[in-house]
Design a protein around this nucleic acid. Structure first.
Lengths: 356, 356
DNA sequence: ATGCCCTATTTGAACGATCCAACTAGGCTG
DNA sequence: CAGCCTAGTTGGATCGTTCAAATAGGGCAT
């Protein structure tokens, strides 16, 4: 697989190939970077030697001469790794998979404790990366402005809500996703669709709530929208969902801003002796592992598309500020929204509680 | 933060610092790499100029000259990203956080479809990375042998079960973790501890099962161990747990090989009208987001330690084949194993099912 | 004073590739 | 037949750093 060069003093270099093919090193370089400049006969001869010697251009030498690393930094946050709804892990994977299509790669780095920008400045100043993919956008985020000011290529996953005119982002259209979910739920025969969301103030949450309302309006059901709020916590979600159920009639559905909230809804439903899907429809957001395990219908973010768009945007030349991509999520339908769902979780014979 | 060099033609280089400090470039290099070779007075002068000019050594130039990238590759697998129990995401984060301690960084790459080794060979041949951190170990894994044969530094997360004598791994002691869990459960007052595990044959699963048996033996309860098997699937796990409950007396506990299996156990327990924790103890493995959300006690892998050990091993010089680290997991105790747990999930007033 | 050693520092030469400008054949034009 | 153009090829310089060997300049013993 990796056969050594003439002299076994390491890997084959471009001059090894050149001498073997009887040409100059520049011709070998041209054969790889500008094939149209090289005579066809020479081209095949060079490529044969490249193949034979197992030559691969040295990345460090290319980076040095080209003044370009063809690498991008991705900040990973220790606090939220593996957390539910943290689709960043999946996004990173899809970015990595798509990276070769753009002949570049990804370098991970951890945030600097002193400053939000320090970590970025440091890895950038070594020339290790050309730019960044920001996996999240925070409120009052100083990073986009700083990067723009320093002419550093970047793209964020998540809209830059504070500055709507600022481009260079890719995001998932939570609003459209919610409309889709409402349509699905009504199509399944649920009479009404209530909403379990986060408290006002988070841009993402507000956007999703608007999607729910829009979905109701589309169906002409917007006259009396029923909603409850809960923070991202199971106990709070369960309690809020229970309040919701108290206000709802039969054959209702609950649309949730996250899988965790939906998990609370599932518990509240079961606590009332009801069966999710058959009695009450429940839809979550992010299609996390939990959703899959609990047979919870959920909106899935198109991470593969998002990664592709991210690479496109980060590589786009010029200062075009309107480089954006808004992608529609898809709905993964499971038992929690199917009326005729068999309920395998229920055991054949209920057993009374054993008394000590 | 990033002030330019004398001529604003890019970043400050080592010669910019040298001329500014009135020394040769090599002295600046020495000041950074071998400070003891430089006279104290010169040292402070050089460092002052480095600070003033905001100089950072160019990584590509260093890599080229040192013939060393100070980077390591980490293969990310598209199929299992974000999956429950996939602690690889967390491991990658901890590796990234700890990387600066070893003045190196991490480069992610996706598996090549043609061959398991092709992706490794390719990124290695460019000199982009010096070695690899393998996030998982498969059965009949050709990678460790290949890497060893080619003198490529590496370390695996997960023992190399096929070749017990082969070193260069860091792993979590599932067996010890299970013993710890059994001890905890018995200490909580549960009369017996049953086991819900994977079918025989997986090295990890068999190891954990042995830990359970060892824990029972330590307590003198090994005479009639009760266990059931299920594949990594919620429905199967729920059914198996239900079979287990049929065989168990009151005040028992179920120790599970994974959080997903434990999730099935929780459902089976609730389906019988019992309350996890109060009536039946349940313990999972991996302390995933689900465990946290469902208040499930679970064994947590010490990923931070694992990352530190991984860096130590991958950087260890020589061909010492016995470079290993076996770390003990910790138990995160939650309501599913606390007898006197309040049960916030139960609503104050049960409501009958609404009839249409 | 001469020789010698030791320390601090400097100079030359890589590392492996690409950019740039120059060079050589040819064929074509006027 | 001189001159021009183009395709194909080449050598020199360069990216920014570190390695290896050479130099300068004391201090100390002979």
């Amino acid at each position: 697989m990796a056969s050594g060069p003439e002299q076994s003093r390491g890997r084959a270099t471009i001059v090894d190939v050149a001498t073997a093919a009887g040409v100059s090193r520049q011709t070998v370089s041209n054969a790889l970077n500008y094939p149209q400049r090289v005579a066809p006969a020479t081209l095949v001869r060079v490529h044969r030697e490249i193949e034979r010697l197992g030559f691969t251009p040295n990345a460090a030498a290319q980076q040095l001469r080209r003044r370009k690393a063809s690498a991008y930094g991705f900040e990973v946050n220790p606090s939220g790794a593996g957390k539910m709804g943290h689709i960043l892990d999946g996004f990173l994977v899809e970015l990595t998979v798509a990276a070769p299509d753009h002949s570049c790669h990804l370098v991970t780095f951890a945030p600097d404790l002193t400053s939000l920008l320090a970590g970025y400045d440091q890895i950038l100043s070594t020339g290790l990366v050309d730019g960044f993919v920001l996996g999240d956008t925070r409120h009052d985020d100083p990073r986009p402005a700083w990067l723009l000011q320093n002419d550093v290529p970047f793209v964020t996953f998540g809209r830059i809500w504070d500055e709507p005119h600022m481009g260079r982002w890719v995001d998932v259209d939570g609003r459209a996703g919610m409309e889709l979910a409402v349509e699905h739920l009504l199509g399944q025969g649920y009479a009404s669709v209530a909403y379990l969301g986060w408290p006002d103030g988070s841009p993402v949450g507000d956007d999703r709530r608007r999607g729910w309302l829009a979905g109701l309006a589309d169906a002409g059901l917007a006259d009396d929208p029923i909603a409850e709020e809960a923070v991202q916590d199971l106990a709070a979600a369960t309690a809020a969902a229970d309040r919701l159920l108290a206000r709802l009639g039969p054959d209702s559905a609950i649309l949730c801003a996250s899988d965790l909230l939906a998990l609370g809804a599932l518990r509240a439903v079961r606590n009332r002796g009801l069966e999710p899907g058959r009695d009450i429809g429940v839809v979550g957001f992010d299609d996390s592992d939990v959703a899959e395990a609990l047979q919870l219908s959920s909106l899935r973010q198109p991470l593969q598309q998002a990664a592709a768009e991210a690479w496109r945007i980060v590589h786009a030349k010029g200062t075009d500020l309107s480089l954006t991509a808004l992608l529609a999520p898809t709905l993964t339908v499971r038992e929690s929204t199917s009326r005729a769902g068999d309920t395998p979780a229920r055991p054949p014979t209920p057993v009374p509680r054993p008394t000590p």
